[in-house]
Computed example of a mutant assay.
Amino acid sequence: MSEIHIEHHKSKHARAALEGRKSPWGVLRELVVDMVPVILGILIALSFNSLKEAWKERREEEYYLRGLRKDLTEDLAELKSDVAQYRVKKKAAAYLLRYDLARNPASDSAYYYFRLLPGQTAPNITNATFVTLQSSGRLGLMKNKAVAGQLVLLYTDVVKGLTNITASFNDFKQTYLFDVWVTEFDYAQIDRTHDIRPVLQNRTVRNALHLLWFDEVIGRYQQAIAAHERIIAQLQQELP
């Protein structure tokens, strides 16, 4: 083979080798092209999982919001029933204080009003959903932080204050009205004759009737009712 031919052959192979060798930018370009589908797949998977978790959290939040609304609605009905009873008891106490013991004989009306006073009326709050949220640390599920804050205030302040004042009221009434009635009078005979004048003449009983703080109790109930109504309306807006 002639030298010219050999040189030409070598040159041809050298050019082929150079052409076959990839530049760094070419390698990078191919790598990027290969990685794009992988990256897109990962991003789509992450987005899907994120949407799935968001949907799951929203369904869980709705579940608890509905539970809160149900509890609050039931409590609201009971609070309104309780405050109606306190208004009746207040009317009964006022009637007995106006009752003219000197001029009026034994009266069925007086006996009726006196019998309205016994019995302890106190809030029976159904806060199971709130307790579950708070004790499990899931109160943060509620996106509306203002409503969550109002719920905390309702159960830790408003309801607690109402419970305390009704407990004090009922204890006072029991001690200074009905324990006196039972221990100092023949209540079985009073039930037969309906003559409560001896009871109303008792200084302890009359003082207790004067001191009963109906207005304060009713005011606390009205505060709790207003708070329940406000939160129920806000929960209604949060639910679909």
Rank of each mutant, 00 (worst) to 15 (best):
I6R: 15
K10P: 00
H13D: 05
R15A: 12
G20M: 12
P24R: 10
V27D: 01
V27K: 12
L28Y: 01
R29K: 05
L31P: 00
V32H: 06
V36S: 08
P37T: 09
V38H: 06
L46N: 05
L46D: 02
N49M: 12
S50Y: 12
E57W: 13
R58P: 01
R58L: 06
E60Q: 10
E61V: 06
E62A: 07
L68I: 12
A77W: 11
K80S: 11
Q85A: 11
Q85N: 07
Y86L: 05
Y86D: 01
Y95S: 02
R98F: 12
Y99Q: 08
A102H: 09
A102I: 00
P105C: 03
D108H: 09
Y113F: 15
P118D: 15
N127Y: 09
R138N: 04
G140K: 11
A146M: 13
A148I: 04
G149N: 10
L153G: 05
T156I: 01
T163I: 05
N164K: 07
A167D: 11
N170D: 09
D171C: 02
F172K: 08
L177C: 12
W181L: 14
W181R: 00
V182T: 10
T183H: 12
E184R: 13
F185A: 03
F185S: 06
Y187L: 07
Y187W: 12
A188K: 07
T193L: 10
L200N: 01
Q201T: 01
L209S: 03
V217A: 12
R220L: 13
Y221V: 02
Q222M: 08
A224N: 00
I225S: 02
E229L: 04
E229M: 04
R230T: 06
I231K: 06
L235C: 09
